[in-house]
Every structure is written in structure tokens, then in C-alpha cells.
């Protein structure tokens, strides 16, 4: 091991009170090689996806469409070396078109949409591909006291094999992107978390976004 090597010092998200309360102040410690394997969780996808959960634009098949812009999100899940991650579970959640979550702890008071749940689960196919439909989420005022918004975003949690990643897909050209604390921490790498729009003439949605996901580090590379 490189004697000068150090673990990362995590940064606190600007204007993010919770980040200030919860971000470790000490540098992360390096893991001795003899203990490294025990830090590579191997977990099967935790739950069974129901077919209709890939379409979050309705609460169930045959129900009315939710309000707002229906979109498709597609991409491929890969490890850093480019290997597709097959059979991984993506758990997806996002706010409705008004910026409100159906979560019981969202006390924002923004409007609910009785046709939108905002939850879905999909599994990557044999080429690591995934696809889901949802409603383009609304931005919401996260810090009314200082007028700081959360830009439109979709949460994605990836589990499967030794991949474990929670991330968010953002939208291009959103004015609130630049002031988002997590986006600020990502710096130029924020680009990687922006979905790339494409036309969807053959699908019953208004727009598609390509969001390829790469799971970083040695944790994604169990089989390599």
C-alpha cells in the first residue's frame, strides 16, 4: 500500500443543514487489504419487481395517467470496466409534477396527484439495460428560509451482485441545477448525472432520457 495514500475527506453540501449535521469530519480510513473482501457486499436484488411498476405514470394498469409530462428513462448499468450488470434491481422514486412525494414524511403541503405514486422497481436485462416510465418531477423549495430549490430529479437505488449505488438523475438546462448542494459537490462530474433527452415517436410518452449508470470502485467488480 502506498504509504502516502489517504482516505477521502467528505465534503459538506453548501446550504444543506442535514449535510452539516451528518457528514463525518474525520477523513475516511483506509481498509487494510486483509479486511478488504469483507467490504464487498454481495447481495441479490432484494425484492421482486411487479411488471406494472415499470410504468410509474399510472398507479396500476388501466388507471388514468398522472398529471404532468410522461417520460421514459432508459440506460445501461455497467461496472467501471464496462461489464454490464445483469439482474440488478433499480428502485426508483420521484416527486409528482408539483414537487410532492407520496412519502408519509413529506410535509411540504404541495398538491398530491391521486393518479401518481412515484415508486417503481425494474430489473436490468441480460445486457444490463433498464427502462421505466414516470412523470417528469417538479422542482421544489427545499429551504424556504433562503429560497434554495431542489432541481428536478429522479432517485435511483441500484442493488444486485456486489453493486450498491444510490444516485439521482437530473435534467438538462434546469436553472436550479447550479445551486444544488450535491451538484456543487460533484463539480464538473455532475454532467454524468444528467439524463440526455431523445425523441420518443413510437412510445406513449412525450420525451425520453438516456441515463447510463456506471457503478464505481472495486465493489462493482466481484466477477472481474
Amino acid at each position: 500500500m502506498d504509504v502516502d495514500k489517504q482516505g477521502r475527506l467528505l465534503e459538506i453540501g453548501p446550504t444543506d443543514n442535514t449535510s452539516d449535521q451528518r457528514t463525518p469530519r474525520q477523513r475516511l480510513r483506509l481498509i487494510p487489504e486483509a479486511a478488504r473482501a469483507s467490504f464487498v457486499p454481495f447481495a441479490p436484488a432484494p425484492a421482486i419487481s411487479r411488471q406494472h411498476e415499470a410504468d410509474m405514470t399510472r398507479i396500476a394498469p388501466g388507471r388514468p395517467r398522472a398529471q404532468g409530462q410522461p417520460i421514459e428513462v432508459t440506460g445501461t448499468l455497467r461496472s467501471e470496466t464496462g461489464r454490464p450488470v445483469v439482474g440488478a434491481m433499480l428502485e426508483i422514486w420521484n416527486a409528482n409534477t408539483f414537487g410532492r412525494y407520496t412519502h408519509s414524511e413529506d410535509h411540504s403541503g404541495l398538491p398530491l396527484d391521486s393518479n401518481f405514486l412515484g415508486l417503481g422497481r425494474v430489473v436490468t436485462d441480460e445486457a444490463g439495460r433498464y427502462s421505466f416510465w414516470t412523470i417528469s418531477p417538479g422542482a421544489y423549495l427545499a429551504r424556504p428560509d433562503i429560497g434554495r430549490w431542489r432541481p428536478k430529479h429522479i432517485h435511483v437505488s441500484v442493488t444486485g451482485g456486489s453493486s450498491r449505488l444510490i444516485t439521482q438523475m437530473y435534467f438538462p438546462g434546469e436553472e436550479n441545477n447550479v445551486s444544488d448542494p450535491m451538484a456543487i459537490l460533484m463539480g464538473d462530474a455532475f454532467e454524468r448525472n444528467i439524463g440526455q433527452p431523445y425523441e420518443t415517436p413510437d412510445s406513449d410518452v412525450e420525451l425520453g432520457y438516456r441515463f447510463d449508470i456506471v457503478v464505481g470502485g472495486r465493489n462493482a467488480t466481484f466477477f472481474e
Binding site: 464496462g82 422514486w93 432517485h155 444510490i166 439521482q168 470502485g217
Partner: peptide
């Protein structure tokens, strides 16, 4: 090596439904 997708916060609303 592909550049990794940034990890991001789970936020306050991880679905209890999951």
C-alpha cells in the same frame, strides 16, 4: 475505465414502501 456515476444522497424520502 468508465467514469463512475456520482453517488448522491438518498434524501429524506426513501420509500418506506420498499
Amino acid at each position: 475505465t468508465l467514469p463512475p456515476t456520482n453517488e448522491d444522497t438518498v434524501g429524506p424520502y426513501f420509500p418506506i414502501y420498499f
